[in-house]
Simulated scan of single mutants.
Amino acid sequence: MTETMLAVAGLTKSYGTVPALAGVDLAVPSGTLLAVLGPSGCGKTTLLRCVAGFERADSGAVAVAGRPVAADRVHVPPHRRRVAVVPQEGALFPHLSVADNVGYGLDRAARRSGRVEEVLALVGLAGYGPRMPHQLSGGQQQRVAVARALAPRPPLVLLDEPFSALDAQLRTELRADVRQALRADGATAVLVTHDQGEALSMADAVAVMDAGRIVQCAPPAEVYRDPATPWVARFVGDAVLLPATVDDAVALTPLGRLPLRGPVPGGATAGAAARSASASGAGGGRAVTVLIRPEQIRLAASGGPLATVVRQDFHGHDALTTLRLDDGTVLTARTLDEGVALAPGAQVAVTVRGEVRAYAG
Score class of each variant (00 low, 15 high):
282 A>M: 14
260 L>Y: 04
246 V>K: 00
305 P>L: 12
253 T>E: 13
277 A>H: 08
303 G>D: 13
312 Q>P: 03
346 A>K: 02
319 A>I: 00
273 A>M: 07
246 V>P: 01
333 A>S: 12
247 D>M: 00
266 G>E: 03
333 A>V: 08
289 T>A: 03
323 L>I: 08
251 A>K: 04
309 V>G: 05
335 T>P: 04
268 A>W: 05
281 G>K: 10
328 G>W: 03
332 T>L: 01
333 A>D: 00
340 V>D: 15
312 Q>R: 10
253 T>D: 14
253 T>M: 13
286 R>L: 10
310 V>H: 06
271 G>R: 07
305 P>C: 11
345 G>P: 13
334 R>V: 11
246 V>I: 13
324 R>S: 12
292 I>P: 04
344 P>C: 14
331 L>E: 03
338 E>P: 01
339 G>E: 08
338 E>Y: 10
266 G>I: 02
338 E>F: 13
339 G>V: 10
288 V>P: 01
249 A>R: 03
312 Q>K: 07
274 A>V: 00
324 R>T: 15
344 P>V: 12
277 A>L: 01
336 L>T: 15
340 V>H: 13
306 L>R: 15
320 L>Q: 09
309 V>Y: 04
297 I>H: 06
344 P>H: 13
318 D>N: 09
329 T>C: 03
302 S>Q: 13
338 E>C: 07
302 S>M: 07
275 R>G: 02
277 A>F: 03
293 R>C: 11
279 A>P: 01
257 R>T: 08
316 G>E: 11
309 V>S: 05
250 V>G: 05
251 A>V: 15
341 A>Y: 14
271 G>N: 06
299 L>K: 04
324 R>D: 06
339 G>M: 07
255 L>C: 11
281 G>Y: 09
307 A>F: 02
244 A>R: 02
328 G>V: 02
261 R>N: 08
287 A>L: 08
304 G>E: 10
326 D>P: 01
321 T>L: 05
293 R>Q: 13
317 H>M: 09
266 G>D: 04
260 L>M: 09
251 A>S: 13
310 V>D: 12
244 A>S: 06
306 L>H: 09
305 P>S: 09
257 R>A: 14
342 L>E: 05
244 A>G: 08
304 G>V: 05
295 E>C: 10
287 A>Y: 01
316 G>R: 01
287 A>N: 05
259 P>F: 06
314 F>K: 14
301 A>C: 06
248 D>P: 00
327 D>H: 02
282 A>F: 12
285 G>F: 03
280 S>K: 05
332 T>A: 03
273 A>Y: 01
249 A>M: 04
346 A>W: 09
262 G>V: 11
283 G>L: 02
304 G>C: 09
258 L>G: 06
257 R>H: 09
337 D>C: 09
314 F>Y: 12
253 T>Q: 14
247 D>Q: 05
244 A>E: 03
244 A>H: 03
273 A>L: 07
323 L>H: 06
346 A>Q: 12
304 G>F: 05
272 A>D: 15
278 S>D: 14
297 I>L: 15
324 R>M: 11
261 R>L: 12
311 R>N: 09
251 A>T: 15
257 R>D: 00
319 A>K: 01
286 R>P: 00
321 T>Y: 01
276 S>H: 08
322 T>D: 09
253 T>V: 07
262 G>H: 07
303 G>V: 14
341 A>S: 11
